[in-house]
């Protein structure tokens, strides 16, 4: 897990991402196939969320499996503010972000005391507590029945009939996170994070305040995750604790980032595109037949990919490409 991105400063470094982003934008313009447009919007959303996770999990090395807590808080905050107080989800989104920054303090505190699997387990517990609270606070949240947001498309309501505005918003979200990650990759902040990730004690010995670094990285990561939560709530129009706070979702953010490549700007984007496409294809192909078949395939692929490319696609694909070329050149 070295920081490749810092090596090449040129624009070519960003070529793959630029092409992916341009492709994402082209789709709603080029086709009126709703499913394809929808797939792109979800890919972008997941890419953004994986990128947000990457800041804490990849750059700072804090392997959180509780990011659904932030996602869910973001989704619920804007939705509740809209439904109970008529507040625009745009404002609600920022409120959710602010709330989550406060909540992330707990995770950051845990991060300063715990490492590795211990930290991961505490984050799971944290998200579970959030899930239970949302499920029990019936009068306010309607519990596990979830909240349905009426479809009333206006800009102020953060709802649109056309897919293009959705795509543009999701794309801005991803591009912003990509840019942030690229910046982190070559900033002093990023080098400090890398130092801390590789050896916390050594970093401290060099005078780096690793506690503060963790707080900042986790807060930033949580804030961006909450924004994605609001987008999700608005786009799908339905939130329930069983999904938005679920371990499955936390795992998904981390998984896409790990498959793509932790601690890189491009990794989460690639991971999200690949995993989302894979899920869609498998589910479409086998989902209706014998229950569970496509998930068996999915699980096997997961095991194989993390084994074959433990550093993710960003490192693994070029290596494989090189080997392939070497073999064919010879």
């Amino acid at each position: 897990m070295t920081i490749h991105a810092s090596a090449g400063h040129g624009t070519r470094e960003h070529l793959p991402a630029a092409l992916l982003f341009a492709g994402a934008l082209a789709i709603p313009l080029a086709t009126d196939n709703l499913f394809l447009q929808d797939a792109v919007i979800f890919m972008l959303l997941w890419a953004g969320l994986a990128g947000a996770w990457n800041i804490a999990g990849g750059f700072a090395g804090q392997l959180s499996l509780g990011h659904a807590a932030f996602f869910g808080l973001g989704a619920y905050t804007s939705t509740l503010l809209k439904l109970h107080y008529g507040l625009s989800p745009w404002v609600g989104m920022l409120c959710g972000g602010a709330l989550v920054v406060v909540a992330s303090g707990f995770i950051a505190f845990a991060a300063t005391r715990l490492r590795g699997p211990y930290f991961a387990l505490v984050t799971i517990a944290f998200a579970t507590v959030m899930q239970i609270v949302a499920a029990r606070w019936y009068e306010f949240t309607r519990g596990n029945e979830g909240l349905s947001i009426p479809f009333d498309p206006t800009l102020a309501n953060f709802m649109f009939v056309d897919k293009l505005p959705w795509t543009v918003i999701a794309l801005s979200y991803v591009v912003a996170i990509y840019a942030l990650a690229s910046w982190i990759g070559r900033s002093r902040f990023g080098f400090q994070l890398a130092g801390m990730r590789e050896d916390d004690n050594a970093a401290q010995a060099l005078g780096i305040d690793t506690r503060w670094l963790k707080v900042v990285a986790i807060a930033l990561s949580a804030f961006l995750t909450a924004l994605g939560g609001t987008f999700y709530a608005q786009y799908v129009g339905f939130v329930d604790p069983g999904y938005v706070f679920s371990l499955d979702l936390s795992v998904k953010f981390a998984l896409m980032c790990i498959i793509g490549g932790m601690g890189t700007a491009l990794g989460p984007v690639l991971g999200a595109v690949l995993i989302t496409a894979l899920e869609m294809v498998l589910r479409a192909k086998w989902g209706g037949e014998r229950s569970g078949l496509y998930l068996i395939v999915y699980g096997v692929l997961l095991i194989v990919v993390v084994r074959v490319m433990p550093e993710g696609l960003v490192a693994g694909v070029p290596q494989a490409w090189k080997r392939w070329r070497a073999r064919h050149a010879a």
């Binding site: 392997l63 699997p117 790990i258 699980g299 096997v300």
Partner: peptide, 18 residues
């Protein structure tokens, strides 16, 4: 840790759905 966690998670998905 990341690789280990996702390997056992993958195994869990496979067994559950099997």
């Amino acid at each position: 840790h990341a690789v280990q966690i996702f390997t056992t998670l993958g195994l869990s998905i496979v067994l559950q759905n099997a």
